[in-house]
Design a protein around this nucleic acid. Structure first.
Lengths: 203, 203
DNA sequence: ATCTGTTTTAACCAATTGGTTAATATTGCG
DNA sequence: CGCAATATTAACCAATTGGTTAAAACAGAT
């Protein structure tokens, strides 16, 4: 049975446009008229399909954690050894965020504005964080790494991955980078960050 | 001549209140009525003293980089050796940000919204970053560290210092921390982050 | 006490915002 | 084709927002 490629319907077009505007401006800064303009529709349609701004936001982001972040957290499932896990995590994180460089700052902003709003994004990683902690404990037991709290290590990994995206305008200003140069820098970090981490923790 | 402690005038009260609201909500999210409420004044006074929202924002933040960040960047001036510089920088950064934990996220947001707006915050550190680069080069020449780009090292240091503040709501949720526990975590990192970095780069 | 300049207030304004309404257009089915 | 349900539109609404205005209050000097 052949699957026929379909023109996106109005609802899909709204969700995609809303996503772009919300990520760029945040929930509070996004304007419904702006979303309508971005989707090429009359503003009243936003209310017809999604009733109000909050439901539109939820329509875009609720239940989306798997799609947004699954590939990153799933990277731990593919490893049976800590150093490999670190390499895979960093690579997966940077690859994913290079698709949407504004996402880390958006999530930080929205978590600050409404901590309950994006809980799914955070809770999605719970099982994977546990798996990571076990990998660290195994490496400790094997004497492969120094004594370090797995949670501290995970904070450091997240910091080294996420911060350049959050501080992107500052970094591009300081170093006179355009978007392509930023991308190249992150691709370099895809290798150098795991090296930096592993050098630090190796016994 | 004795200096008499003075009651803050209306202008000072406005600036302090505006600062709190801007840092909490960002420039776009802050409401003039909210600033007036926070300062305990009539909203029209904001316009009497500062004419409009943009000038109020500039009144709070322009020219303030030295006071906000001087202590952090000045930490490089007190060191003649790289490892000491790293320790002093991390300590100064964390101490300063523990006074205003919302500041890193605010700066990231505002740099994203209006990159020209807070240039002074970024440019303030230029001479100090040069000094840091020289310290790295001296350590390289002395064979004390591995071959690493000073700018990469500085990004990593900033990441490990700033990210927990930016991701504070996420971290407090994941680890079930209150504000006091977050503070204790950062005080631990005040020592563990320099150790992590130095272990990674030491030759 | 009077005068002048400054500060403060309450009321007001125009524009913007998220949302509503009623009419119109479209779609799919029998 | 007619009908009913759905989708779309333009106009409208009430509330909020940053800002304005004129009057009143205050402060200091003479």
């Amino acid at each position: 049975m052949a699957v026929v490629q379909q023109e996106p319907g109005t609802e899909e077009r709204i969700l995609a446009a809303a996503r772009r505007v919300f990520i760029r401006k945040g929930m509070a800064g996004a304007r419904m008229q702006e979303v309508a303009d971005e989707a090429g529709i009359n503003k009243a349609l936003l209310h017809y399909y999604f009733r109000d701004k909050q439901r539109l936001f939820e329509g875009v982001f609720k239940g989306g954690a798997e799609k947004q972040f699954g590939c990153i957290w799933n990277s731990f499932n593919d490893s049976t050894e800590l150093f490999d896990a670190i390499e895979r995590f960093v690579a997966a994180y940077i690859d994913r965020m290079l698709e949407e460089p504004l996402l880390p700052l958006f999530i930080a902003q929205e978590m600050s504005r409404d901590p309950e709003g994006l809980r799914a994004f955070v809770d999605r990683g719970q099982a994977s964080r546990q798996r990571f902690i076990r990998l660290v404990e195994e490496a400790l037991a094997a004497g492969a790494i120094i004594d370090i709290d797995p949670r501290d290590l995970l904070v450091n990994m997240m910091a080294l991955c996420a911060h350049p995206f959050v501080a992107r305008p500052m970094l591009t200003h300081i170093h006179g980078m355009n978007d392509e140069a930023f991308r190249r820098m992150m691709l370099k970090r895809r290798k150098s960050v795991p090296e930096f981490i592993i050098r630090s923790i190796r016994a």
